[in-house]
């Protein structure tokens, strides 16, 4: 036992030493890419920064929920965008299982909420207030929802509790879940052709801001206990009688072996920090200007040297 603990402390010491002085492993790190542009670009930005300090980087496309399992197993080394509302659950679950570490929160805040394109305002002037939206419910009706308005939510596995909220607030709407983010965007694009009124799930930052101007619906503000204490809020009998938290976190995550294997890279990752404006900028270069993510990352790095150089020191 004594030998073993000695060995262990020796190893820890070695780890600390290597964290301070040793070089990173020459094996390539793997960065997970997902299906939205800001994440792809900022992953490339982080990758390029790590390469600039002498590391090798490879990219792999993964599902944005399944990636946490892959990080735990060490198949993916790091993840640059952990959104609170959509991926918080999967991330927290993975943390509990072990194998993954929280590498800090960025300045950017995320907002996910019901959203409408600006042309809705012409037919329903009271927007963005949720009561006004409810009064206009008929404008959003479709054949499959009958008299009620149709709200197109995100994929079911994002677990937004929109149905509960519709019930809690007594809204005259029916929830329809889109199968993917692409389905949401396609719906917005199709509606834009004849300015059909729609209300869909959306979040910021993403490229839709730049292509289709619109606003989030203002629900009763989020408060602690909204989800689990029915007695609180506008409806004393039901939970979920509020909007989503307006400022969700955006975190970085990494495999727990990263610090030992690539100590320098890990130190850089800890300092990486993007703002909402920077992320929107990256998404726009790809989604609006039609650049390739690799090129967008290079351009961003060239334009923002003052931002990222200090992270490498």
């Amino acid at each position: 036992m004594i030998h073993r603990s000695l060995l262990l402390s020796g190893a820890t010491l070695l780890g600390l030493v290597s964290a301070a002085y040793a070089q990173d492993s020459t094996d390539p790190m793997t960065i997970g890419l997902h299906d939205w542009s800001s994440q792809i670009v900022d992953s490339r930005v982080v990758g390029d920064i790590l390469e600039s300090v002498g590391d090798k980087v490879e990219y792999v496309t993964t599902d944005s929920q399944a990636v946490y399992e892959s990080i735990r197993l060490g198949d993916v080394t790091l993840e640059t965008e952990v959104w609170e509302a959509t991926f918080g659950a999967a991330f927290t679950a993975a943390l509990a299982k072990g194998g993954i570490v929280d590498v800090g929160t960025m300045d950017a805040v995320t907002r996910e909420e019901w959203w409408f394109p600006e042309w809705d305002k012409e037919v329903c002037p009271g927007l963005p207030d949720w009561k006004a939206l409810n009064d206009c419910a008929k404008l959003f009706a479709t054949p499959e929802t009958g008299e009620k308005g149709r709200y197109l939510g995100g994929p079911v596995d994002w677990q937004m509790h929109d149905g509960d909220r519709i019930d809690a607030l007594g809204m005259n709407f029916t929830l329809v879940n889109a199968g993917s983010a692409a389905a949401l965007w396609a719906e917005i694009a199709a509606a834009s052709k004849d300015k059909r009124p729609i209300v869909v799930f959306n979040w910021t930052p993403n490229f839709i801001d730049a292509v289709y101007p619109g606003e989030f619906i203002e629900f009763p503000a989020h408060f602690d206990g909204c989800e689990d204490k029915p007695e609180l809020g506008v409806n004393p009998k039901a939970a979920f009688d509020c909007g989503f938290p307006g400022n969700g976190y955006l975190k970085k995550a990494a495999w727990d072996g990263m610090e030992a294997k690539w100590p320098k890279a890990y130190a850089v990752l800890q300092k990486v920090n993007f703002t909402n404006a920077q992320l929107a900028d990256m998404a726009k270069m790809v989604d609006v200007d039609g650049m390739e993510p690799e090129d967008a990352a290079k351009k961003w790095l060239a334009d923002n040297e003052a931002v990222w150089k200090p992270w490498t020191e």
């Binding site: 890419l33 542009s37 496309t61 983010a181 692409a182 965007w185 490229f207 039609g290």
Partner: peptide, 11 residues
């Protein structure tokens, strides 16, 4: 992968 990415941004 590229096809999916492009579809996500409706290209």
């Amino acid at each position: 992968q590229k096809l999916l990415q492009l579809m996500q941004s409706l290209k």
